[in-house]
């Protein structure tokens, strides 16, 4: 969930950690203090490219209370559509990009008796902001991170400032997950971040061992997308593409249309818009069941379209 007011970030430094990993440090391009962040937060970065802009989310890896610098680590994905390729090849120190303010749905649990972090590869990034906070609060932590054998050194270096005896870097594919999960005391919370396959495997193993959903937390960067569709603006006749990783509200805002919004989470009613044609896919908490089945209203901040074309009264 983004907050609509992107911030301009200037690249202060780029550091190659390995052939496919780069750490990038940003400062505010307008000289203002950066919006406050918190452990586990991420920003959505807009990276310009030849075939259009790409918007990817990256966890902030630095000290969460730092208001002058944001740091991210980006993996160059071999078959990427362009976002990470652009980051690795085209960006230079001094470039200015726009980013969403930090948001987070991946948060440390205050009531946890123990925090168990399991991750893989680039999934280490949100953990890098968790670890200093967990240590500062002297909390029970256990961490298992699975990386390619040729990257063990890189990741050990990344974890060096946060090193603790209950932390292990494993070379190779994630195996022995059940052994890690078995025998964890009551009140342990599990945080998972890494390649989709690893996250699914760890989650499945936890469920097999009887862990409840409320104790399993995964970083999905608040994935809120869906099938792309076309929105037609009745008053002007304009048609806009709503991309799979973009909300209807974001598409309207990107096109310069002044749609009111407040919570951007489907709860407050502020962005209520009339639907004139097409079938909305409701994902909000505001409309009543009757209003939803009538199909003449939509909350663009979270809802999408079942029909390929949706006509709204804007």
């Amino acid at each position: 969930m983004t907050l609509g007011r992107d911030i301009p970030l200037r690249i202060r430094a780029i550091e190659a950690l390995s052939p496919s990993l780069k750490r990038i440090a940003f400062v505010a391009a307008d000289g203002n203090p950066l919006p406050g962040s918190r452990p586990g937060a991420h920003i959505a970065l807009t990276v310009p490219g030849i075939d259009g802009a790409h918007r990817n989310s990256y966890s902030l890896v630095g000290a969460h209370q730092d208001r002058t610098t944001y740091e991210v680590i980006v993996r160059r994905v071999a078959q990427s559509r362009g976002g990470s390729a652009q980051v690795h090849e085209a960006l230079r120190v001094g470039d200015v990009l726009s980013a969403s303010p930090p948001t987070s749905q991946f948060n440390l649990q205050n009531k946890a008796k123990k925090h168990l972090l399991i991750g893989g590869g680039i999934g280490i990034t949100p953990f890098l902001s968790f670890l200093p906070v967990l240590r500062e609060r002297n909390l029970a932590v256990e961490m298992h991170h699975f990386v390619r054998p040729d990257e063990v050194t890189v990741f050990e270096r990344l974890l060096l400032p946060h090193r603790m005896p209950t932390m292990r870097i494993h070379a190779g594919r994630a195996v022995g997950i059940e052994d890690i999960l078995k025998g964890q005391p009551l009140g342990t919370h599990l945080y998972i971040c890494g390649p989709v396959g690893l996250m699914q495997d760890v989650e499945a193993a936890a469920y097999r061992l009887g862990w409840p959903t409320s104790n399993i937390h995964q970083e999905s960067f608040g994935a809120s997308g869906g099938r792309p569709f076309i929105v037609e603006l009745a008053r002007s006749g304009r048609k806009l593409q709503v991309g799979e990783n973009q909300s209807l509200l974001e598409a309207l805002e990107a096109a310069g249309l002044p749609v009111r919004s407040m919570c951007r989470g489907g709860a407050c009613g502020e962005c209520l818009t009339q639907v004139l044609a097409g079938e909305p896919e409701h994902r909000d908490h505001f409309l009543t069941a009757a209003e939803k089945s009538n199909g003449d209203r939509i909350m663009p901040c979270v809802s999408r379209s079942i029909s390929p074309l949706l006509t709204i009264d804007i």
């Binding site: 999960l181 078995k182 025998g183 964890q184 005391p185 009551l186 342990t188 061992l209 009887g210 862990w211 104790n215």
Partner: peptide
């Protein structure tokens, strides 16, 4: 008993 128990208990 609970102090010695593990995740998965109901």
């Amino acid at each position: 008993r609970l102090a010695r128990e593990h995740m998965g208990l109901r």
